[in-house]
Design a protein around this nucleic acid. Structure first.
Ligand SMILES: [Zn+2]
Ligand SMILES: [Zn+2]
Ligand SMILES: [Zn+2]
Ligand SMILES: [Zn+2]
Lengths: 159, 159
DNA sequence: CGTGAATTGTTATATTATTACATAGCGTCC
DNA sequence: GGACGCTATGTAATAATATAACAATTCACG
């Protein structure tokens, strides 16, 4: 595994450690469920975690091609499908892109704060927002199954 | 203009009237701003309003082709761009599709409740949800510029 | 009318994602 | 160990979504 200097996030933290933790959690989650975190899937997850930005499927594809030779779209999309199914990665619909889940220990929807200046995606799960949505849904007689909440703007360091 | 029976929404209402109102509002909004609601743009808006479902750009394209002859993607995407710029249409990112704005009198983000069974999209603008998001953002020091809030599930009649 | 700006037409291409089928790996039963 | 069945991966083709670049037309305004 190579070093990861160029793509580190804006927030100051030990990102190598941050990635290692994410991969360890992924191993644990998959082990617990009898799911196979294969070399390929693990590699894709690692690429996603190289930054706290959302990464596009074809960027993953290009990086894979540079590292392990030929890679085709289905390879990437299948890995992403697996990682999303196990809650290790979220899809950011407003960007057609993917980001590592900040709390992969349990499946969840979350809210994403996306800085349009630096690209950093910050995931939180705010119960107040969740409750507000639930009450709105209730008034409409609507049964919510999946929440997609993505807020675009400027993060603290980019204002 | 043809009749609109097949695509009427689940909720019982006078949909012909509903469409007419939407077009009238659009005329008014554009007049007020000196924007030109050309025949093409008006036609696209009307196609979008034929149902309360989100419609895909290429569905619009197909319908235009059937009605006025050749139509190319840029034609549709440009009309959509105009309609969105003037708040007459919203894009539903989680569907790559477009829906008529339920309250085009003023520009806004809103929340969309999307029934995955019947496809109906219900737009509301719930201040409670907006406030919850604002407070979440404030705690992160994040400045929100655009809110994408799309809730998938089942509407009342599809449960 | 003449002019410039906005709109639309047209061709090509970029970007994102899936289908369909072939091959390879891997655990289990006998 | 070998046959079987399941999961994962490889590969080719194509579908679905969106934009770029430039030409032709239309339209408001003077
Ligand atoms: Zn990190
Ligand atoms: Zn998450
Ligand atoms: Zn209606
Ligand atoms: Zn609206």
């Amino acid at each position: 595994m190579s070093d990861l200097p160029a793509l580190a996030p804006a927030t100051k933290h030990n990102h190598a450690r941050c990635v290692r933790d994410a991969l360890d959690t992924a191993e644990a989650v998959c082990a617990r469920r009898g799911a196979r975190l294969t070399a390929l899937r693990r590699h894709v997850l690692e690429l996603i975690w190289r930054s706290h930005k959302a990464i596009k499927a074809y960027e993953i594809l290009d990086q894979l091609a540079g590292e392990i030779g030929a890679a085709r779209p289905p390879t990437v999309y299948r890995a992403l499908e697996f990682l999303m199914a196990h809650g290790l990665v979220h899809r950011v619909d407003s960007l057609n892109a993917f980001v590592g889940c900040a709390d992969a220990s349990h499946r969840h929807d979350a809210q994403f704060f996306i800085c349009d200046a630096c690209g950093t995606v910050r995931e939180i799960d705010d119960v107040t927002i969740g409750r507000a949505v639930s009450r709105g849904a209730e008034r409409l007689g609507f049964e919510v199954e999946r929440r997609m909440i993505e807020l675009h703007g400027r993060c603290g360091s980019c204002q």
